[in-house]
């Protein structure tokens, strides 16, 4: 029959098209992997070359004299482990605070219709719009009067505030995606609004919350300016400060910086390996219905 013939031809052509698109997709992914990873591979290579093989006229693609000296030097620097620990603490605390406080705010914006919601979103964003340069001095004075200067709690509190716009925008999207009916059902069963938030909404959006947590964690883990400016002793400094301190006035130790870079992405990769499942699912549900 002519009709089914054309249908099968259409199917054929659709199949061909699909294969064609798949080929393009593979090409795109391959290209992007090269683009994304080449600098990192080069960083890894650099981290195991002796300094003399980096600053040289003869470019070495494969390190001829591989060495782990940079990693050893880095790890032996005084205070490195403390600073790594400080970073881990500050990051965890920040994520916990942001998720707790941000969840409430995002839920409110997502579920309630009150005047000035747009204005509030905009207001939260101002914290990102005003140059941090001019925030430094007032922040410093504020933390001092709270007794939080030079403490990890002070840093975490600062990061929490500065992460608020990101978490608010993202979490709002995730909560929007949770159907209101489910919540209503829970409330008929005797839950309060608060109960419904903890027992229905948050579990359903948990993967979205995980995704937000990753965004916040990466930001807090890598923050440098506040970490340097709002602490005054070795004991409360964080990892990005260590990295920055390797760049000296009269030196730029490529190998050390590269090694530092490799070390600093490790924890995040591990975190991702665990969070990956939740992350993908979360982003699936969330972000989304604005």
């Amino acid at each position: 029959m002519q009709f089914s013939g054309s249908l099968s031809r259409m199917r054929e052509s659709q199949k061909a098209m699909r294969r064609f698109y798949d080929a393009i997709a593979y090409a795109v992914i391959a290209f992007m992997l090269v683009f994304a990873l080449f600098p990192l591979v080069w960083t890894a290579m650099t981290s195991i070359k002796p300094e003399k093989d980096i600053v040289t006229n003869e470019l070495q693609y494969i390190p001829r004299n591989p060495t782990f000296e940079h990693y050893v030097t880095l790890w032996n620097r005084s205070g490195v482990t403390t600073m790594f620990r400080n970073s881990a603490f500050t990051t965890s605390l920040t994520v916990a605070l942001v998720i707790l406080v941000g969840t409430f705010a995002a839920y409110s914006i997502s579920r309630y219709r009150f005047r000035g919601r747009g204005a509030i979103l905009l207001f939260y964003l101002t914290i990102r719009m005003f140059p941090s340069v001019l925030m430094l001095l007032p922040l410093y004075i504020m933390l001092r009067s709270l007794g939080l200067l030079d403490t990890l709690w002070g840093l975490a509190l600062t990061y929490t505030t500065f992460s608020m716009p990101v978490s608010l925008l993202m979490l709002k999207g995730f909560f929007d995606a949770v159907p209101a009916d489910l919540e209503d059902a829970a409330r008929i069963d005797g839950c309060t609004r608060l109960g419904a938030l903890f027992r229905v909404v948050m579990p359903l959006a948990r993967s979205g919350i995980a995704a937000t947590a990753v965004l916040i964690a990466v930001g807090a883990w890598n923050e440098f300016l506040f970490a340097l400016m709002l602490t005054n002793s070795e004991g409360s400094r964080t990892w990005p400060v260590v990295l920055q301190l390797m760049v000296g006035e009269f030196q730029l130790p490529w190998g050390l910086i590269a090694a530092g870079g490799m070390i600093s992405i490790l924890p995040i990769i591990i975190f991702f390996a665990f969070a990956q499942k939740a992350l993908v699912r979360g982003l699936m549900v969330g972000a989304v219905k604005g």
Binding site: T43, V218, L243, I257
Partner: peptide
């Protein structure tokens, strides 16, 4: 129909994770 997407997704995120001091100097 794409295979290996899960691994690619993590690998493609790495540039965004590396601290900017390191990223800047490496570039």
């Amino acid at each position: 129909s794409i295979r290996g997407g899960a691994v690619a997704r993590v690998l493609l995120l790495l540039p965004w994770i590396i601290p900017s001091v390191v990223a800047g100097h490496m570039w």
